[in-house]
Simulated assay, not measured.
Amino acid sequence: MTGRRIGIVGLGVISRAYLDTLSGAAGVEITAVADLDPARTAAVAETIPGALALTPSDLYAHADVDTVLNLTIPAAHEEVALAALAGGKDVYGEKPLAATLDAASRVLAAANTAGRRVGGAPDTVLGTGVQTARAAVEAGMIGTPVSATATWLSRGHEAWHPHPDFYYREGGGPLLDMGPYYLTALVHLLGPVTWVAGASSRSRERRIIESGPRAGEHIPVDVDTHVTGVLGHRGGAMSTVTFSFDAPSTRAEPIEVHGVEGMLVLPDPNHFSGTVLRRNARSTEVIELPVSAGYEAASRGVGLIDFVTGPGRASGEVALHVLEIMTALLESAGRGARVPVTSTAIVPQLVPLTPLAGWQGHGA
């Protein structure tokens, strides 16, 4: 059972999704929770049988915690991860791995020194949507992949979020917010990226909050809010990506993969499942592929379960590689030149089709 006793640091909104998933899993046990708000810590601990309400520093040192689940804000990811590693714990964190590439590199270096493991979201890529498409690519259903497109457009999170400020500060923006879902999927489908060429812009210098107690308040925009680019994958395929807070809608599919013998249409990689469509190069017929790979009925936290009970497909190395891709896109946009991606990652093994009872550990 090494690694399966989980301590959670950061008990904000996203923690609820993880708690719902982990509480139903037989292979893990939540033994402690911590937050900067003691009242919140106590309230959450009361909902988890046997869980301790601790301060973050006490949780890092506690003997009944093997793995720290880091659900703090991105600016705190490095600090929490380093403290947990120093306490002899493995670490699994929400995306991004850290707020900057240098910070993420320090986390992985510290893990290597300590002989500990690091994993990180997004784990949506382990669901049946992306994994079924990946199985089709690996089976040669579309021939040699030559390109892919990934598109996510929105008019901005101020339309619904009552406190959207951090989306428009350094470390925010549409690429760093939504990019991890799409780029992680592209790495699984087409392999690591070796170079990028990016461009970016911003449509306005201030945004107006549209909901909540601050509705009508203007907030500054410190980052580019429309980012596009081309990724060169190690195997030769190229992906074209667009992420925007400046465009309200699109008719483009979330992800398409094009091969010499056909194409695939993938569902939104921000979700675990969805329909995968295939079209053969010699036919106009569009076929829905049967689900053939991935964790069925998955939800946020399945990557942590895979991390502590399986091969750890949502690895820190993949998370670091994706963070470098995003950093390089922004650097390329600023320089107006192609930028190499120096990190790499071993593409995790395909997830075999695994029913809910299998990955939750009940009757597997």
Results as ranks from 00 to 15, higher is better:
residue 161 H to W: 10
residue 131 Q to V: 06
residue 294 G to Q: 11
residue 213 P to M: 07
residue 320 L to G: 00
residue 212 G to C: 07
residue 177 D to N: 12
residue 106 R to A: 10
residue 65 V to A: 07
residue 116 R to K: 15
residue 178 M to S: 05
residue 58 D to E: 13
residue 102 D to Q: 14
residue 92 Y to F: 15
residue 62 H to Q: 11
residue 166 F to I: 12
residue 213 P to N: 06
residue 248 P to W: 11
residue 211 S to P: 07
residue 331 E to L: 07
residue 196 V to F: 00
residue 100 T to V: 04
residue 76 A to H: 03
residue 59 L to H: 13
residue 55 T to Q: 12
residue 298 A to R: 10
residue 29 E to W: 11
residue 38 P to S: 05
residue 95 K to G: 02
residue 161 H to V: 05
residue 44 V to L: 10
residue 252 A to V: 06
residue 24 G to N: 08
residue 200 S to T: 04
residue 16 R to K: 13
residue 82 L to M: 13
residue 251 R to K: 12
residue 349 Q to T: 14
residue 291 V to E: 11
residue 147 S to L: 04
residue 168 Y to N: 11
residue 33 V to K: 08
residue 70 N to V: 11
residue 93 G to S: 15
residue 153 L to S: 02
residue 347 V to L: 03
residue 332 S to C: 01
residue 2 T to Q: 14
residue 126 L to Y: 07
residue 187 V to L: 06
residue 117 R to E: 09
residue 8 I to D: 08
residue 233 H to P: 01
residue 120 G to C: 15
residue 101 L to P: 02
residue 275 T to G: 02
residue 196 V to A: 00
residue 359 W to Q: 08
residue 182 Y to H: 13
residue 216 G to I: 14
residue 98 A to V: 14
residue 308 V to Y: 02
residue 266 L to P: 09
residue 106 R to D: 04
residue 333 A to D: 01
residue 70 N to K: 07
